[in-house]
Design a protein around this nucleic acid. Structure first.
Length: 1030
RNA sequence: GGGCGAUUAGCUCAGUUGGUUAGAGCGCCGCUCUGAUAAGGCGGAGGUCGGUGGUUCGAAUCCACCAUCGCCCA
C-alpha cells in the first residue's frame, strides 16, 4: 500500500503552494461549486466598497481585501448565500489627474485643447487597465469574488441612479445653488469639498505681516490701525478691519493703534475699548486699484479676534476667507473676489493682473514697504490645506456650486447611524461627530470625466432636474444622436425643453458630480432599487460596456439584499463612503444602508512611518506575494486589532512564518509516522471524534480542539479576526508543545488512538483557520484529508464549518491538564534553581495544592525526571501568610490594613486546619494564602495556591543513573557530530572505567540505536554498524 | 480651539467586572533535548504601567488636570 500522505519539505514554500492551490481551485471550480451549494440558503449581504481603479494595489489595500474575503469565506462555510460582487470606482479627480499626468497636461485649458472626447476615452482605458490589474492581484491574494460581474460606477446605470437621487433631493427642496466660499485648488480649477480635505493639512511657512491702515477721519490724521495677516494676496480685497470689542486698544507715540495686551511693554498715549473704534473709516491698503477704491473700509467688532497672536486687529477680506465671508453677511460688507479659476488676479487688479497668489506675495510686501505701510514682515509656520490630489496649496475662493442641504436631514442621519453596530464602537462616535458638524454637501466639480449633473436651469428661472435617461430622451430637443454615453462631452450636446416656460434650448450646467455620489448610490444601483424587471447584463452600459457582465437587478432582488448585513473599509471612509451611502439611503429610504461596519486603522511600515514611494519604504503587493506569500500577509492583517495601526514589513512577516512553522512541523510529524506505520485516517472521525482507546491526553486534545472551535466561532461572529488568530496560536502551541511532546513515543509504534487524535485535531484546526489562511489550510487539507479519504471533499472549503460536538467537550479535563502543566512548570523552576541538570534524576517531589493534577503522577515523574511524586503537605520551617484580598477586602474594609501588616510582620497565630488569627481577627482558610520558604535540602517553587518542593539530595543510585543519562547525551551528540542519519545503527564503545554502567547497557543501546555496546579503551566512540538497520 | 484614541520590558503588543509577585512574542544571556533536528523546549536579566493629584482597604485599570503622539473637526 502506498503511503497515505505526501511527505512535507522541511519548510513551506508559501508562494509555490499558493500558486498550486490557485490552480486547483480553478481546475476544480472550487468557488463556483461552493456558491452553488449555498445558493438558496440563508442570505448574508455584504456590499463591497468600490476601489478606485486608477492604478495597481499596494499592500495597504490588502488589509481590507483580506478582511472582506475572510468573512465571506466564514459565512460561506456556514452555508450563507452571498453576492460576492466586487466594485470599481471609475471617475472623478483621481482618474482624471492620473491621466492628465500621463498625457503631460497641466491645466484645464490643456485638457480642453486635447479634446474632451479623447480625454474621456483615455480615462476609460485607464480604468479598464487598472481594474484588470486589481482583479489579478485580488485573485492572487485568494479573494473569492464574482469576478467579471463587477460594478463600475461610471456605467450609465449607476449615473442614472444618481440622477434619480438628485431629482428626489430637488423635489424635497434640498438642492441649492450657492455663491459661497470654498477651498479651491488653483491647479485643478475646482472647489474642494469638506470631506476631501482629509489629511490635506500640512505645516507650511507663510508670511506674517503687520500692515498700517491709515485712519480717514481728519481728527485722527497721522494715526493708523496696525492689522495682522498671513495672506498678503488677500489685502487688495480688504473691506474691513475687525477689533475685539471687549479688548483694550492703545495708540503708540507714532500713531499706530494696536491691542494693549499684545504689547505689554509699550506705553500708550491713548487707550480705549475696542468698541470705541468700531465704525471708524480708514484708507484701504490698495485703494489705488479700482476694486479697493470702490469700498468703504471701516472697523467692525468681532468677538473672535484673538489676543494670542498678531496685533489684535484683523484684516477682513470676505472674498478670501470663510470667517470673513460670514462677517460680510452680518455687517453688510462689500465682497471682492480677486482671483480667477486658476488662482490668478483678475484684470481689474491692474499691476497684479495674471499673478498667482504665491507670485503676488513678494510684490505686495515690497509695494507696502515702499509706501510706508509695512510695519513688520516675518514668517509663521502653521497648518495649511493642500489639494489631496496634486498637492497644490489651496486658496479660498468664492464660486457658484451646487449643494445638498445638511440641516434638514441631520437628525435623520443621526437616528439612522444609531441603528448601526460599529466595530470598534468608537468609530460610531466619529460618525456622529461628523454628522453633527456636517456642512451642506458640495456636490459639484468644475471638471470633465465624472457624473454629469442633470441640472438644466432655464432663463425663466425654472430649474429642470432630469431623473433618468428615458426622461432625458423624452424632453430632448437636440443632441440625442451623438449621445454615446452619459458623459461629457456627449451629454453637453443635448438640450431639453423647459418644464416651466417651454423654452426649447435649455442647456445642462457644465459641472460634474462629487465621486462620493458615485459610490454612495451603490446599495441602490447595484441591487436594482425600484427597477421593475431584471435586465441580464443590464448594469454594464455606458463606459462600463464590455468591462462587466453585471445584471441590472430588480426591486424584489433589492428587497432581498438591502440593507447590507456588513460592510468593511478603512477608517477614513467614515466621512467618505460610509457617509455618502448613509446620506443617500436616508434620503431615498429613510434608513441606514448597512447594519454592521468593521473599520480599521492605518497601514504603516515596520518602523511606524507611512509608506511612501519617495521614502523607499513602500512594499509592492506583487513583491510581497512572492517573498512572503499571501497567507503570511493575510495572517499579519488578521492578527491586528482594528483599533491599531498595523506595522507591515518583512521582519514581522518572518515572525509569522516562524509561528506557522510550528503547525507545519506538527503536520509533518504526523505525516512522517503515519506513513511509516501505514496508518489510514477515517473521514467520519471529523464529525464523531477519534475512535479507539483514548488516553487522558488524547481526550484532552479532543476537548481542546472543541474549545478552539468555540473560541474561533465566537471571534468570527464578533468580526474580530485577532481573536481567531490568538485562539489558533495558543491551540497550536498546546498541540505541539504538550500533546506531541508527551505522546511522541506512542507514534514510534502504531498507536491508533494517538494517530487518529492528532489527525482529528490538526484537521479540525485547518477548518477553523481556513478563512484566514486559505492556501495553507487547503494545501494541508488536501494532504491530510482529501488524499487518503475517498469520501472527503477535495477542498476544506467544501467541508463546512465544524459543528460543536458536546460529547467531545470536557472543560474539567482542560482544567486538569492546565493544572498539570502548572505543576510541571513549577517543578522546572525548582529544578532550575537547584542548579542540577535536567538529566540528573532526583528522588522526590512534593506537591501541595494542584489537586486536579493528582491523576498525572507518572507524567510529572517523566517530565521532571523524579522517582517519586507525592501530593501532600510540604514540610517547611517557615510559613508566610498573606491575606486573600478579594475575600477579605469587602469583609474588613479599612481594617484590612492592620491584618495585612500583622501577617507581614509574622504577628499571627496558627489555629490549625488552615485557620489563623491576626490583629484580632480569625481568618478562615479561604481568606488567606499560605506560602512556604525553602528548607535545607529542598528546592522550592510556588505560584498561586500551589507549592512544589524538590528533594535535591543525591544518593549513589541517583548519581549512577545521572551518569547513564550523561553517556546517552554524549553519544547522541557524537552521532550528530559524525553526521549519522537518525535511523543509523551503531556500535558503541564506552570507556572500560564505565564498566559499572553495564547494568544499564540495554537502556543506553536503546536510546542511542546501538546494536553492540563494548566497554574498552578510555574514550566514548561510535561507529556506524553494518549489520543492518532495525 | 473642540472631539476621539493612545502612552505598559530594548522592539511589537496583551492585560477581562479595580485584587496579592503586571504578562506574551521577538531580541539578549544561560541551560536543555537529540526519533519534528539548518527544528524544539526551559530558565534568567530587563518595567517607578507617560506625569501629578484624587476616589478606594486596594489603581496599569475609575476620576481630574498636565505632557507627548496619532487621528477627526474648526
Amino acid at each position: 500500500m502506498p503511503p497515505a500522505f505526501t511527505p512535507l519539505p522541511a519548510v513551506p514554500d508559501h508562494p509555490a503552494l499558493e500558486r498550486d492551490i490557485l490552480e486547483s481551485w480553478q481546475r476544480e471550480t472550487t468557488f463556483e461549486v461552493l456558491r452553488a451549494a449555498n445558493s438558496g440558503g440563508p442570505r448574508w449581504s455584504f456590499i463591497d466598497g468600490p476601489i478606485t481603479a486608477n492604478k495597481k494595489m499596494g499592500v495597504h489595500h490588502m488589509w481590507g481585501r483580506t478582511l472582506k474575503d475572510v468573512f465571506q469565506r466564514y459565512k460561506a462555510l456556514n452555508g450563507f448565500d452571498q453576492r460576492y460582487q466586487n466594485g470599481y470606482d471609475c471617475q472623478g479627480l483621481w482618474v482624471e489627474v492620473g491621466v492628465e499626468r500621463e498625457l503631460g497636461l497641466n491645466s484645464k485649458q490643456e485638457i480642453e485643447e486635447y479634446g474632451l472626447a479623447a480625454f474621456a476615452n483615455k480615462c476609460r482605458d485607464k480604468v479598464a487597465w487598472s481594474a484588470g490589474e486589481i482583479t489579478k492581484q485580488s485573485q492572487r491574494l485568494g479573494m473569492w469574488m464574482d469576478w467579471g460581474n463587477d460594478y463600475f460606477t461610471f456605467s450609465d446605470t449607476n449615473i442614472e441612479y444618481i440622477w434619480r437621487f438628485l431629482k428626489v433631493v430637488h423635489e424635497k427642496g434640498l438642492l441649492t445653488k450657492g455663491y459661497r466660499g470654498t477651498e479651491w485648488c488653483p491647479r485643478c480649477g475646482t472647489s474642494i469639498s469638506q470631506h476631501e480635505l482629509h489629511g490635506s493639512y500640512h505645516d507650511a511657512t507663510d508670511p506674517s505681516l503687520f500692515v498700517r491702515f491709515p485712519l480717514a477721519d481728519p481728527a485722527r490724521h497721522g494715526q493708523a490701525l496696525v492689522i495682522w495677516t498671513t495672506t498678503p494676496w488677500s489685502l487688495p480685497a480688504n473691506s474691513a478691519a475687525a477689533v475685539n470689542p471687549e479688548a483694550e486698544y492703545g495708540r503708540l507715540e507714532n500713531g499706530d493703534w494696536v491691542a494693549v495686551a499684545r504689547y505689554p511693554r509699550e506705553t500708550f498715549v491713548e487707550q480705549v475699548k475696542g468698541e470705541a473704534l468700531v465704525g471708524l473709516a480708514y484708507t484701504g491698503p490698495f485703494d489705488h486699484l479700482a476694486p479697493g477704491a470702490a469700498v468703504q473700509h471701516r472697523v467692525i467688532p468681532w468677538a473672535e479676534v484673538s489676543l494670542e497672536d498678531g496685533s489684535g486687529i484683523v484684516h477682513i477680506a470676505p472674498g478670501c476667507g470663510g470667517d470673513d465671508f460670514e462677517l460680510s453677511k452680518v455687517h453688510g460688507l462689500e465682497i471682492i473676489n480677486p482671483i480667477d479659476e486658476a488662482g490668478r488676479f483678475l484684470p481689474e487688479f491692474g499691476w497684479l493682473h495674471g499673478l498667482s497668489t504665491v507670485e503676488a506675495k513678494d510684490k505686495i510686501i515690497g509695494d507696502l514697504d515702499e509706501r510706508g505701510l509695512l510695519v513688520q514682515a516675518g514668517e509663521l509656520v502653521h497648518r495649511f490645506a493642500f489639494c489631496w490630489r496634486c498637492e497644490t496649496p489651496l486658496v479660498f475662493r468664492l464660486t457658484d456650486d451646487w449643494f445638498i442641504k445638511a440641516d434638514p436631514v441631520r437628525e435623520d442621519l443621526l437616528k439612522a447611524n444609531a441603528t448601526v453596530e460599529w466595530i470598534p464602537d468608537y468609530f460610531g462616535k466619529r460618525m456622529d461627530d461628523w454628522l453633527r458638524n456636517l456642512a451642506d454637501w458640495n456636490i459639484s466639480r468644475k471638471r470633465y470625466f465624472g457624473l454629469p449633473l442633470p441640472f438644466y436651469p432655464c432663463s425663466c428661472g425654472h430649474l429642470n432636474v432630469i431623473g433618468s435617461r428615458a426622461e432625458l430622451e423624452e424632453r430632448a430637443t437636440a443632441g440625442l444622436e451623438g449621445l454615446e454615453e452619459l458623459h461629457r462631452p456627449w451629454i453637453d450636446g443635448v438640450t431639453i425643453r423647459c418644464a416651466g416656460c417651454g423654452a426649447e434650448d435649455v442647456q445642462r450646467v457644465p459641472e460634474v458630480g462629487d465621486v462620493w455620489l458615485d459610490a454612495g448610490i451603490v446599495p441602490f444601483s447595484s441591487l436594482g432599487w425600484m427597477n421593475e424587471t431584471r435586465v441580464p447584463g443590464g448594469y454594464a452600459n455606458g463606459s462600463a460596456r464590455g468591462l462587466s457582465g453585471a445584471d441590472l437587478n430588480d426591486h424584489e432582488y433589492w428587497q432581498g439584499w438591502f440593507p447590507a448585513d456588513w460592510v468593511s473599509e478603512m477608517r477614513e471612509q467614515i466621512r467618505l463612503w460610509f457617509y455618502a451611502m448613509l446620506f443617500m439611503s436616508v434620503i431615498l429610504e429613510g434608513r441606514a444602508p448597512y447594519k454592521k461596519v468593521l473599520a480599521y486603522e492605518k497601514l504603516l511600515d515596520a518602523d511606524g512611518r507611512e509608506m511612501h514611494g519617495s521614502l523607499g519604504n513602500a512594499i509592492d503587493a506583487d513583491e510581497a506575494f512572492e517573498s512572503m506569500g499571501a497567507d503570511v500577509m493575510r495572517w499579519m492583517y488578521c492578527a491586528q486589532p482594528p483599533t491599531q495601526n498595523i506595522r507591515f514589513g518583512f521582519a514581522p512577516a518572518n515572525d509569522v512564518k516562524r509561528k506557522l512553522l510550528t503547525l507545519w512541523n506538527s503536520v509533518s510529524f504526523l505525516v512522517t509516522y503515519a506513513n511509516i506505520e501505514e496508518w489510514q485516517p477515517r473521514y467520519s472521525d471529523l464529525a464523531d471524534g477519534p475512535q479507539g482507546d483514548l488516553n487522558a491526553n488524547d481526550r484532552w486534545l479532543v476537548a481542546r480542539t472543541q474549545a478552539l472551535v468555540a473560541e474561533a466561532t465566537a471571534a468570527y461572529e464578533e468580526f474580530l479576526t485577532v481573536g481567531v488568530v490568538r485562539a489558533f496560536e495558543s491551540f497550536v502551541d498546546d498541540l505541539s508543545n504538550w500533546y506531541i511532546r508527551r505522546s511522541r513515543r506512542r507514534f514510534y509504534g502504531k498507536d491508533e488512538a494517538a494517530l487518529s487524535t492528532l489527525w482529528y485535531a490538526l484537521t479540525t484546526s485547518l477548518r477553523v483557520v481556513g478563512p484566514i489562511m486559505p492556501f495553507l489550510a487547503d494545501h494541508l487539507w488536501r494532504n491530510l484529508v482529501a488524499g487518503p479519504c475517498a469520501d472527503a471533499p477535495r477542498s476544506v472549503f467544501h467541508a463546512g464549518w465544524p459543528t460543536p460536538n458536546p460529547a467531545l467537550a470536557d472543560d474539567a479535563l482542560i482544567v486538569e491538564i492546565a493544572e498539570l502543566r502548572r505543576v510541571v512548570e513549577l517543578g522546572r523552576q525548582a529544578r532550575a534553581s537547584s542548579g542540577l541538570k535536567n538529566r540528573q534524576p532526583l528522588r522526590r517531589l512534593v506537591v501541595q495544592g494542584g489537586d486536579a493534577a493528582r491523576a498525572h503522577v507518572e507524567e510529572i515523574q517523566e517530565e521532571l525526571r523524579v522517582k517519586e511524586v507525592v501530593f501532600g503537605q510540604v514540610e517547611a520551617v517557615q510559613l508566610r501568610v498573606k491575606p486573600n484580598l478579594p475575600a477579605l477586602g469587602p469583609k474588613l474594609g479599612p481594617k484590612l490594613r492592620d491584618v495585612k501588616l500583622a501577617l507581614e510582620s509574622g504577628a499571627f497565630e496558627d489555629l490549625g486546619g488552615g485557620r489563623f488569627r491576626a490583629a484580632g481577627f480569625e481568618l478562615e482558610p479561604n481568606e488567606v494564602l499560605v506560602e512556604r520558604s525553602s528548607v535545607e535540602g529542598w528546592s522550592l517553587a510556588e505560584d498561586l495556591g500551589l507549592t512544589v518542593a524538590l528533594f535535591t539530595a543525591l544518593d549513589d543510585e541517583l548519581l549512577l543513573e545521572g551518569r547513564v543519562y550523561d553517556v546517552i547525551h554524549h553519544v547522541n551528540s557524537l552521532r550528530k557530530d559524525t553526521g549519522l542519519a537518525l535511523t543509523d545503527r551503531i556500535t558503541l564503545r564506552l570507556p572500560a572505567d564505565d564498566i559499572d554502567l553495564i547494568g544499564f547497557a540495554a537502556r543506553i543501546a536503546d536510546e542511542t540505536l546501538a546494536l553492540d555496546v563494548i566497554f574498552e579503551g578510555d574514550e566514548i566512540a561510535v561507529e556506524k554498524s553494518i549489520s543492518g538497520t532495525r
